[in-house]
Each structure stands twice: as C-alpha cells, then as structure tokens.
C-alpha cells in the first residue's frame, strides 16, 4: 500500500511547525506544538500496523491473524504522557508571561528585565 498514512504524519508535523513559527499567541503556540506532536503518534501507529492484523490484545483474539506491533503502541503511550506534560508546562509559562507583561504575544516579550 502507498505511503499515504505516513504523509498524514508529515503534513501534521509541517502544519504544526508553521503554526508555531507564525504564532502571535502562546496558547495558540501550545496547541500547534500538540498538533506537531500528534504527528509522532500517527507515525508510530503506522509503523506498527500490519495488513489484516488485529489489536495486540490476546483476549478474544482470532487465531491465525497477526497482532499489530505492541511495542510502538506502548511507545505512543509514553509519547502522549510527554505531550501532556509539555502542554501543562507551556501553559503555565504562558500564564506567567501574561502576569508579568499583560500579554501572551511572544513579540511583546522582547526586553529582558532583571
């Protein structure tokens, strides 16, 4: 089968990156970062997929059909946790920036004050 599922991941990554580059708002930037990170979930799940496969749960599994890759699914779980952690910290930083400068626009945070 054609590599279209991987292309979905590529599009998500580049779209998220463009969002981060053009962002004028920290909250928007955090969402774009999440979009970028979701491309890694798609990549991992795609790498593990098998044609005619079944979920890697052996309870009630049909005999004879292969299981899709359980390793990348476990990795995706780690990836989701990291994504949530990063999102929480970025949002906390955005709140902090808003408190200090009254703005969530990265361009308004030019000067460093001691």
């Amino acid at each position: 089968m054609a590599p279209y599922p991987y292309a979905v991941a590529g599009v998500l990554f580049v779209a998220g990156l463009y969002g981060i580059v053009s962002s004028r708002n920290y909250i928007h930037m955090a969402v774009c970062l999440t979009v970028m990170q979701s491309s890694t979930y798609v990549t991992l799940i795609c790498v593990g997929y098998l044609n005619n496969g079944q979920p890697p749960i052996t309870q009630g599994a049909q005999p004879g059909k292969p299981l899709v890759d359980p390793v990348v699914q476990a990795l995706t779980l780690t990836d989701v946790v990291v994504s949530v952690v990063v999102l929480a910290l970025v949002l906390a930083l955005a709140l902090q920036a808003h408190r200090r400068t009254g703005s969530v626009d990265p361009d308004r945070l030019r000067g460093m004050r001691g």
């Binding site: 089968m1 599922p5 590529g10 795609c46 098998l50 890759d69």
Partner: peptide, 24 residues
C-alpha cells in the same frame, strides 16, 4: 527531507520488527 525519509520506509502494513513478532 521528510518526504525522502517517508519514501524509504517499508510499505505501510507490510513488515513488523523482530521485537513485535516475538512479543506478539
């Protein structure tokens, strides 16, 4: 660069790593 890398990946749904086969 991404497209180049994607083109080099095995076909979608055709291969599985040794760990996946072993664990499954």
């Amino acid at each position: 660069f991404l497209l180049w890398g994607l083109a080099g990946l095995p076909d979608f749904g055709s291969t599985q790593g040794p760990y996946a086969r072993y664990l499954a």
